[in-house]
Nucleic acid binder design. Structure first.
Lengths: 374, 374
DNA sequence: CTCGCCTGTCGAAGCGCTTCGAGGGCGCCG
DNA sequence: CGGCGCCCTCGAAGCGCTTCGACAGGCGAG
């Protein structure tokens, strides 16, 4: 039995089942290196396994003395509960899934900010985060949901007619979407209010006296994919323009310098009186300023520019950009909070829209309307 | 979704233990919604639970007929193994941890590329990825390792004297580091060979006849933190400059336009003959070109610029930048492959250095050395 | 003084899966 | 024609944890 050359290691190493108290269990008797189990803690503290469990979970009252003794043993042994066993017994994995897109058109820095916020917030709720990419599609969601690997799901970059949305409705696990599909009924969605963001940008430019403006948007493919935020921004932009009675154009735009330059040149040629620009394309923000300079337009003297982008991008530009912040961190935090509330069975609102906040910086100024029109 | 008013849902829903064959188990009899277990599959296929397990794992020979029958049942019931139970019984979670930094100085797009590659590759090995941020530090690593939540760890942005490195050596779980600590003994590390990357950039400029060059690097804080890649690039840069007998300066640099402009102006003032620039700071790449233009220097006529950055950044710039690619995807893929090999118990090399590849684009040209100096 | 009720602790029964040793058939060699 | 392997399949024993019901004392109320 104890022959070390024997090819079946495990049975020989089985711990004796409470044979003679805490007899030979101490020290390094066979078994796997440092796997401290709850039974080890219980033995060390001289209590039952269930007592240790209750101390750790707080689900039943335990006297202060016992609790301290148990906690001391936990520390002494360096005990960490086995996640698999815990998940199996409690039917809670304490893990949430984060589904990130990896397609073009999304702004990476925002994504990272967002992911960071999700992880950090999840940890404050004692949860970990499983990272998935969207390319596994519905099958991937079904897999992690059915395997009970995660308790809930946070989904980014939801499209208007996302194939995963119907599935989410049928899934056991609660979910929170970043972005709004065409029909958000029965779901929990959160996002910056892009419609209002579009409006706010126009309001600002209109207040400064600009009478002809343009929206430089995401690459055309993003609109084609029916990504909600692009459409909603455009809609808000259009509505506000109409409301203010000013002329407005919308122009999708790729992110290369050449493309930005071309689109801007074209825009300025068609509308010589263009004096306000809303840029909803982070990657292009930098190019826009360079291109305007190359086209001989000063910012903000000739053209005012408002961007929808993270503050750091706006601040890093030259001149610093008046911008509507994309509150990635706030969205991430709230998404997790919403999910946690759903996990607790609490009711949550179907839609959460974060108010856009416009920060005025150096790139916008009064329209030179008094001057002669070029 | 089950009746929320009932306080004790489980005991009532216990399945009868094989009471009368497959009697009432079909359909929606009590119990939790769609949790299909391996027992359900076994019953449906008319085989033992262990047989189903062996079909799925392939660890024992199962006849073709039985296998087909079992697989048919798996599909029919939409069975997905419970991850917790599997992890508990097999001592393998089929999850790896990915530890990302979230400090400043790291280049977000590269990070995302990298994370994506890790997730995608892990999936091809039937593993999922748990996302951690570095701010949990060693305690976080210890936690996930001890909880058996992950089988292995991929760690990014390793510093020269990283506090987590000694811990990793003692941990049960295998790990792979992206980046090299000062002492990589006993670890598995992989990264672009930044030393050679620095050399390659200088070689290129020297070959073009440039006699005075400068390295515009990461913000000073990155060097202070003793981040390996920054130091190694600088060392390679310096070595090659000496070897070619050309004058070289190194300049850490923040990422704002103002800072880039200032540093460049300063550099050009001190060294009027400066004609070659190596930029190892992705976020500043765009600013550099704008600043050079503002300083009245043409690229590449007056100053040649080589960047160390992802191809897409280099290609998007105007003019397109000659660059050494940061092979984020390749690193991510290889890191996971290495980890998988370690999990299988295979030996792996301690150090893997990826060869830098220089792509010549429009931003470098022959030095105007024949012209009069300034 | 007795009863009922807390309070605090324990033992045991799983959670769903993997894995090991057994063992039933059956072809083949002697 | 008997027996020995071999190939498949099965049953059972856990993996480490949570949770439920039980129950030993101790206390205030009747």
């Amino acid at each position: 039995m104890s022959d070390p050359s024997h090819p079946t290691p495990r049975p020989a190493a089985r711990r004796a089942t409470r044979a003679a108290g805490a007899g030979s269990a101490g020290g390094s008797s066979g078994k796997r290196a440092d796997m401290v189990t709850i039974a080890d803690v219980a033995r060390h503290a001289g209590v039952a396994v269930s007592t240790v469990s209750y101390v750790l979970s707080g689900k039943r009252a335990i006297s202060a003395t016992t609790r301290e003794r148990v906690l001391a043993s936990v520390r002494a042994l360096g005990y960490h509960p086995n996640a698999g066993a815990r998940a199996l017994a409690s039917r809670r994995a304490n893990v949430i899934a984060l589904v990130l897109p990896l397609r073009s058109g999304m702004h990476l820095p925002v994504l990272m900010q967002f992911a960071t916020a999700v992880v950090t917030t999840a940890r404050t709720f004692d949860h970990d985060v499983l990272l998935m990419t969207a390319d596994e599609g519905p099958a991937g969601l079904r897999r992690i949901a059915a395997s009970a690997m995660v308790d809930g799901i946070v989904l980014m970059d939801v499209e208007m007619h996302d194939v995963r949305v119907p599935l989410l409705r049928t899934l056991e696990r609660p979910s929170v979407l970043i972005g709004f599909p065409a029909d958000p009924t029965g779901l929990t969605c959160i996002d910056l209010d892009f419609y209002r963001a579009g409006q706010v940008c126009v309001d600002h430019l209109a207040d400064l006296g600009h009478r002809r403006i343009a929206l430089l948007g995401a690459p055309a493919v993003v609109y084609d994919r029916e990504t909600g935020f692009a459409h909603r921004t455009r809609a808000g932009f259009a509505e506000a323009a109409v409301r203010h009675g000013i002329a407005a154009t919308t122009q999708p735009c790729p992110e290369t310098f050449a493309a930005v330059h071309r689109e801007l040149a074209d825009l300025l040629a068609r509308h010589p009186d263009l004096s306000g620009l809303v840029v909803h394309n982070e990657a292009a923000v930098g190019q826009v300023l360079t291109a305007l300079a190359a086209l001989g337009r000063r910012v903000p003297a000739d053209v005012s520019v408002v961007a929808i982008c993270p503050d750091e991008v706006a601040e890093r530009a030259n001149p610093a950009l008046t911008s509507v912040l994309i509150p990635a961190e706030e969205v991430g935090r709230q998404a997790v909070s919403l999910l946690m509330r759903k996990l607790k069975g609490e009711p949550v609102p179907e839609a959460t829209l974060l108010d856009p906040r416009l920060t005025v910086r150096a790139s916008t100024g009064r329209a030179a309307s008094s001057r002669s029109p070029a």
